[in-house]
Nucleic acid binder design. Sequence first.
DNA 1: CGCCCATTTGACAGCTTTCAAATCGCGTGG
DNA 2: CCACGCGATTTGAAAGCTGTCAAATGGGCG
Lengths: 254, 254
Amino acid sequence: LIPALVKLDQHATLTEADRSAFLDLPVRCQTFKAGGYVARQGERVRSVGVVLSGFAYGSKVTSNGARQIISVHMPGDLISVQHAAFRKATSSIQMMTPGDVALISADDLDALVAERPDVQRAVWLSTLVDGSIASEWVVNVGRRDARSRIAHLLCEFATRLKAVRSDREIAYEFPMTQEQVGDATGLTSVHVNRTLQDLRRNGLIRHDNRTVTIADWKALTAVGDFQAEYLKQDDVQAETSRHRVEQTALSNGR
Amino acid sequence: LIPALVKLDQHATLTEADRSAFLDLPVRCQTFKAGGYVARQGERVRSVGVVLSGFAYGSKVTSNGARQIISVHMPGDLISVQHAAFRKATSSIQMMTPGDVALISADDLDALVAERPDVQRAVWLSTLVDGSIASEWVVNVGRRDARSRIAHLLCEFATRLKAVRSDREIAYEFPMTQEQVGDATGLTSVHVNRTLQDLRRNGLIRHDNRTVTIADWKALTAVGDFQAEYLKQDDVQAETSRHRVEQTALSNGR
DNA sequence: CGCCCATTTGACAGCTTTCAAATCGCGTGG
DNA sequence: CCACGCGATTTGAAAGCTGTCAAATGGGCG
């Protein structure tokens, strides 16, 4: 649970007791293959998840069979929190790549946060960031053309993966197929393909297989109309938090 | 703040002490005219709001000048919670109609929820519902055609306004201009106009001025691919909560 | 080496946008 | 009480971005 704790620690000031109480939560780790369901829309939900490795995504399917990806979850992210809160999955969550997810009983988490307001606040704020990302996605699919939508998605990934280093080429593992990019941006895989080629021809990105490299960050953020503020990842604070968290983890033998 | 308390009470079991502590929060009421800004994107935010009357909406503007409405807020809704949590507005919030908003200092709210985990949970869960709505909007603008998008929006309004009564025509005040409907659904006002006419010609709705009446709820939900579960408004519980809340309010003289 | 899934390509259709311009609705001032 | 003014609604024609439908190509894994 350490990667999740690092993220939580960014959002609230947790005490050592808070941190170890969180780390002491009983977890059930589960390994999924790509495409495996962590939750299915409509099902009863009894646990929240923490992505330990790999990528996951949330999606809904419309009555005419189209799929829309509504969220992407990276290692350390809490998933299914909204589902667990109401004990019902309002969307499906699947693995985008093979990976491991730690499952925490919703009852256990409820009990923990009822006892520890700062932990509750940290989890809460992490869900608020998820909401902020969702809002930006509404803008992305609602008001941007294909070039911008895809550019924006690539920028979001780079930022969330903390792959952005000033004045250097940015490269990262990009786990989505072109069809999934289409499902996330409200486009067809065919058009994603053509748009990706266009981005490549213009020297903004390169991509071979599963790795994307952003050749011109400034230009790509301009095309994608990307401002990172909505992700509000305070990296400085994250560094200090990681430090504190690792000490906690060591002292707890995890 | 009573309407907000009613909504919060749906999400957690609050004690009398919780309720009166919430109602005792210092508030500053402010009257806005239509179009007035409750918050501007990028600004520092020091308070959360409660819509007392009228409708509000959140929006973002893209670099090429297009506006996307990302949320609609109705009387009783908490607004700007995400902004207040990070003390910064990541979107603008404006009134859609003239109305009153109660402003609560973010510091005061932070202090309250730090003391009262159940209140924090209630506020948290209300923001999770907002997130659920935002996710559904991603689906709406990403994967549905104009007819469905608009039908879905009308269904969402009817449900959130609790205007749905079985086997009867549904009528409610609809505060959005066609341009705003376009901004919410990712369409142009011109196309919204044509699509509304289409919906009307097909006998699904009628609309004069600011009031919409849904002539065929079943058909409109089918066209809009609308399932109300994601709004998870438990009306039964809401009724009992309202009862409790009004007692609290009376005993506090509000 | 072969199968399967992801990527790529082409031609064409179609939903939505664009750009004006006309009309309507309604609050305001005369 | 009626004219005026401005924003909202309507309408038309044409352009455009994106989708659809196949079919070919490519790449990775058993």
